[in-house]
Amino acid sequence: MTSLALLGTLAVASPAAAADPLQHNCAVRAMPSVSYAQEMKCFTFFDQAVAYASGNTVDASAWRWDPRAAIYSPSFTRAVDTAPGDRRILSIEFEHADYRGYALVVWGTGGNCEPGRERVVKNLGQTTDHWWTDKVSSFSPYNGCYSEHFDDINLNRLLDGQNYKMDMTKGNDRTNALSLHGGLSAKEADDDCNSGKAKCTFTPDAKIEYVPTSIKDEMLGWNCSTQPQQIRFDDNITRTSSYTFEMGLSTSYGVEAGIGDTKSHVDTTLSLTFGASFGEQLAKDYDATQVIEPGSVGIISSAVANRKISGTWSVTYPKRKWYHTDWHPSMTAHRLDPDQPMHIVYNQRPMSSAEKASFCSRSSIGVSEPAGGARG
């Protein structure tokens, strides 16, 4: 009888003796360095940390017991990258490789990571037990962020980082600070190639393509009245050869070393690529009156012929810029065909709700200038 009673007591007591999960799933705020203040809050479960970090806009309850599956889930990534509001999850750091163990959800206000902008976490050991000190083994950035890892709380001794999910290849279990940023900006790449601060080379992806008609909206008129209105459009319309940098990945931290006198003017490089001067320009005066129907917009557009090339730049710095020496932005460039005339096209369509709210609050009729101003 004693033996049976003891077994019964053990059977009842066993569940109560089970330890609760520890509160090491944390959310930490990244802030601009100039206004930095520590802010970390910890929870029992992964989805609780995600909810707090996102301002309750991301529901990760389906992955409460398997955070690793969330990192590989397109639906979770989509939820994080499209969450509404000003508060964003910037990266999720993990205790173990392959996104296992406890998670540290890094968040910030001010929207997505943008090129040329940085938010930091200067100390991962913000809890009383300093639990997240020297713990990170893998990470997954979101919302356009690079997640850079440092051995020192003052962002010294760079360890590893990228803008895609990965295991720590250098400095495993040594992270004490983070930088969340959007990488090299298009303006920085352009300026630094032209000035010689970086060594820049361009590699076309394909042959030059002929584009017989490239259309650009130049002026927009509106009519918020109840009657058709005659509206005058007049301007000197100018089209120039143009290019657009689209920032891509940094493939390497690289070795810091001098690069010598290596100015690579973008226009000069593109002139060599096209086999003709890149600084072409076409201009045409336009002065005409158009009838715009009630609730409609009239659009003046220019149409030119050009030649198009796409490719990738290699932008290499002697000293790390945004913690990397090598950047690889893509570019699309259009060189005007000076032997073909510019055509002016007029079209009319109903106003969108956004246009109606914007234009009709200014005046019943008007014309927007190319720079975005307005005249009645």
Rank of each mutant, 00 (worst) to 15 (best):
T57W: 05
I231L: 14
D134Y: 15
T213S: 14
M351Y: 02
I365C: 07
A49Y: 09
Q340Y: 05
P341N: 03
Y146L: 06
E355Y: 03
C145V: 15
G248E: 13
C145R: 07
T2Y: 01
D167Q: 11
S358F: 07
S14P: 00
I92W: 10
M247R: 13
S277L: 08
G311M: 08
Y36H: 07
L124E: 04
E148T: 04
S358V: 01
T175S: 15
D205H: 14
V80G: 08
Y164W: 12
S368L: 13
V28K: 01
G275V: 05
D337L: 05
A60F: 15
D205Y: 10
M219E: 14
G8Q: 12
V28N: 03
G372V: 08
I208S: 04
S195C: 09
S330A: 13
Q290A: 00
E369M: 05
Y253W: 13
P341T: 02
T226C: 01
I208E: 05
A79C: 07
G376Y: 13
A69R: 12
H181Y: 11
R375L: 14
P228C: 00
S252V: 10
D167N: 15
V121N: 09
V136K: 08
D98F: 12
T44I: 12
A97H: 11
Q230W: 12
R29M: 09
H334V: 07
D326T: 08
D59T: 08
W222Y: 14
V315A: 04
K207R: 10
V367M: 01
E148R: 09
S301K: 07
Q230R: 07
D20F: 02
T175M: 15
V211G: 02
I292Y: 04
T244V: 04
Y164K: 05
W131C: 03
I299D: 11
R232V: 11
N306T: 11
S330G: 12
S271A: 15
S364N: 09
C360W: 11
F278L: 07
D59V: 05
D59A: 04
T44G: 00
V304I: 13
F43K: 06
Y253S: 03
S330T: 15
D151W: 14
A70E: 08
Q290P: 02
E280R: 10
R64T: 14
S271C: 06
P15Y: 09
A70Q: 06
S353E: 10
S138V: 09
T133I: 07
T251R: 11
D160A: 01
A51I: 03
K199A: 13
S33P: 00
V266F: 12
G298A: 12
W132T: 03
Y164P: 00
A371F: 06
W107P: 00
L90V: 09
L270W: 10
A303D: 13
M331Y: 06
E114S: 11
G125I: 10
Q230S: 10
S185G: 13
I215D: 06
G125V: 11
R88S: 00
N143R: 14
E209M: 05
A288T: 10
V106F: 02
F76C: 11
S310V: 09
R119A: 12
P115V: 01
A333M: 09
K356I: 04
T325F: 08
I215P: 00
N223I: 01
S73Q: 07
C193E: 03
A97C: 05
L184Q: 06
P21Q: 08
N176P: 06
A69D: 15
T289H: 09
D190T: 03
Q348G: 04
S225F: 10
R307D: 15
D167G: 06
Y243L: 02
